[in-house]
């Protein structure tokens, strides 16, 4: 793993998200609680909705286009919908968000 420092946790509003541009495509970085961050691919498997624009509740996000709900932890669609979004390892340390760069490049190569 190679941890890349991408931003301060406070750069993302509580229960909000921001987009991280990577060679593997856009990644949505979520902050569901004061000091947690999760990173998921920013494309909804249903019809490509930008998950970073969804409403964040608990450790879940609701897609803005047709309200599918995804777990931020596993990327799995919740309830009756079926699908999964790629997730990327993220750590929060001393108020900074770190993302696993290897996972980003690996997805890219694959």
């Amino acid at each position: 793993m190679s941890w890349i420092d991408i931003a301060a946790i406070d750069d993302i509003p509580l229960r909000g998200a921001r987009v991280l541009k990577t060679a593997a495509g856009c990644v949505a970085v979520f902050r569901p609680t004061e000091d947690e961050a999760y990173a998921l691919s920013d494309r909804c498997p249903h019809k490509g909705g930008p998950l970073s624009d969804g409403i964040v509740h608990d450790r879940k996000v609701t897609c803005p286009l047709h309200n599918w709900v995804f777990s931020l932890e596993t990327g799995e669609a919740q309830g009756a919908d079926e699908g999964r979004v790629d997730t990327y390892p993220v750590r929060v340390e001393n108020g900074r968000i770190l993302i696993d760069g290897t996972a980003l490049t690996r997805r890219h190569a694959a």
Binding site: I6, L20, K21, T22, G101, T105
Partner: peptide, 11 residues
């Protein structure tokens, strides 16, 4: 704006 742009780094 995007949080950060890693397109160069990741490549």
């Amino acid at each position: 704006a995007p949080l950060a742009d890693l397109t160069l780094e990741a490549a």
